[in-house]
Design a protein around this nucleic acid. Structure first.
Lengths: 365, 365
DNA sequence: CTGTTAGCGCTTTCAA
DNA sequence: TTGAAAGCGCTAACAG
């Protein structure tokens, strides 16, 4: 019966204050951890709170303080491990700062991103982490401008007036391009999930830049495969491998696309790195499980999520500093690393393999 | 200036009522979609709302209505594609019902699960979806009992008084066991990420049951490898493959564990299915990318997430029916499917391969 | 350092 | 069908 009575109505701040023999104001100050009350009062109030099972009502608190301690995170696809890692890291730092993360999966649909961005502001979040699926939508840009709380963009070129955390895909791809060019490759296939987005744009540009820099712009044959489907990547690579002058190297995203490409390589009896050099983008399990292990261009998704969360915190609580160090405009750039493993080999001018065995582990510039 | 003035203070329901020439009560009824106001009033109020950019304040609404339309979802690791799929599906059905999902990653830590379960109720969620990382913690069971809102458990045997959605791992593994036993396999390695959890327990039990049913309980050698690390799976399988009477078949989770096992198989020069039959658990990319494609025991993670969300909705809104059909106690069981592909072959009594080429695609019971 | 008080913006009776 | 009024539980400003 005692329990039933207690469960009947949740104790409010008023109850707590009465039971503890203090005023609501004091009780509030204690429970919110605001300095003021004496140590004796604090311990006593906490004690009573524990005893009567007092829990502050979040709605009332938000209503009055105009802060919900809720942060929305919009990602194109939480099924994708990339976003899983980012979200996990972000959630972790936000939680430590006392925020809770609302997850919204936009299904990589621009229309939906617009709606959801709006929906989410209705919930009254204090901030937004946004990983857009596209960059070119004017409507989306407008919608972002409408958001009246701090918002941080993840690795996309959109809304330059908002802080962002990006990956330096250009430098990363440049390293890779130089590495591959040094090995003698001149016909290279680049696999992109969506070539109009920042990562793909930067990488393509980097390969062209690298070739131009060494004056072999004309000699370099770059093939672009633009799909996010494993099956299409597979069939397109198959076609590519069967043509007269097939690529001697491929470079592409590791979980889905490259899997399709590798399957095509296997099907056409290609040895890696004997007949085909491979650079994997993103350090996936595939890269490490594959035989031989794949040379990989990678960056820290954890840092991406972590820094984005910190940037957002800094915006939400003007008191605290970003911890990370964005440039003057609030943009932060993360670097890529090229991990040399066993999937690349040198080729001669005809695209035939040079060395008999072993793989190329000469350092890239 | 007009814009600045508008942005100055967000319009409240009172503002809306005044502008529209109705009372707050009516305005509230209109905005909340409650029947009552005449069609003319409704359109007019909506019109004005749109014009002045009225957005209801979620905190005030929650405070008054005692419902936040927030649902917490606790998962051990959002980095794991399994949970990504579940969360995505759940988020989708919850959103359609007007709820927003709070994501909490428990990092597969029981202590943390307890704390977070508590934390999350403080936020004032209307319900909880919980995918526990463990089953045996008494403290966790207590903590679950403390949660005073609807809560649905995902695929774990804990808190039987709460509704749950589970996968029928037993029947699935039984099918697999019979299939493998029919092919003549008698030395089988079972890979588990954590053998004390429901999926592993049921699968192990199923293999023993299958053997007992055909009176070969003694002849069957089951090896258990219990790790969630790819490297450990690799080294343990390597050791296993190098012993005098190595297993002729392995059965295990597909993304990490099996990847390690396959690497060990490759390293010991094993042909699949020639020297080793493989059944993959969970339809991962690996299963389809591998050559040969892997026979797989699978179930719908989407359904798992979807049904869990529906069950929760039914609990939160007593009006609506579950749509899914749980048993009397609110538990729902999802079935597994064994997809026969090219990674299993028949062996003779000595464990040597029987057929020369091709793979076993005889139907399992 | 502690108490008092006036709302935050909304829903929900109840009366008109 | 609509309007008026009473709070939901809390914070913040100010008085003591």
């Amino acid at each position: 019966m005692k329990k039933a009575a207690a469960a009947q109505r949740k104790p409010t701040l008023k109850d707590l204050a009465e039971q503890a023999g203090v005023s609501v104001g004091t009780a509030s100050n204690v429970m919110a951890g605001r300095g003021g009350p004496s140590a004796a009062t604090v311990t006593h109030v906490f004690e009573v709170a524990r005893k009567i099972g007092y829990v502050a009502n979040a709605a009332a608190r938000s209503l009055r303080s105009r802060r919900s301690r809720l942060v929305a995170c919009l990602v194109p696809d939480i099924t994708n491990r990339f976003y899983g890692v980012i979200v996990r890291a972000a959630e972790h730092v936000l939680r430590e700062a006392g925020y809770t993360l609302l997850l919204v999966d936009t299904h990589n649909d621009t229309e939906r991103e617009c709606e959801l961005l709006l929906d989410v502001t209705r919930v009254g979040v204090d901030g937004v982490l946004f990983a857009p699926g596209s960059e070119s939508s004017g409507k989306l840009q407008q919608q972002i401008a409408q958001v009246d709380v701090p918002l941080v963009i993840l690795d996309r070129d959109i809304a330059p007036d908002r802080p962002s955390v990006k990956v330096d895909h250009f430098s990363g791809a440049l390293k890779t391009a130089n590495y591959l060019l040094d090995l003698g490759h001149r016909r290279i296939a680049l696999l992109f999930p969506s070539s109009h987005l920042r990562p793909a744009r930067e990488r393509w540009h980097a390969f062209e830049t690298a070739a131009a820099a060494r004056g072999i712009g004309d000699a370099l044959e770059l093939v672009r495969i633009d799909t996010s489907s494993m099956d299409i990547a597979f069939s397109q690579c198959l076609a590519l491998f069967q043509q007269a002058a097939p690529p001697t190297a491929i470079f592409g995203l590791g979980t889905t696309l490259l899997a399709g490409a590798l399957k095509a390589a296997r099907q056409t009896g290609r040895d890696i790195p004997g007949d085909l050099s491979v650079v994997c983008v993103g350090d996936t399990e595939l890269a490490q499980v594959h035989t031989p292990e794949l040379t990989t261009l990678t960056w820290s998704l954890q840092d991406l999520g972590r820094h984005a969360a910190r940037l957002l915190l800094a915006e939400m609580e003007p008191g605290i500093e970003p911890q990370s160090s964005p440039d003057a405009t609030g943009h932060l750039m993360l670097t890529c690393e090229l991990i040399l493993r066993d999937s690349c080999a040198a080729v001669d001018a005809q695209g035939r393999r040079k060395a008999a065995r072993g793989c190329a582990k000469t350092t890239a510039s």
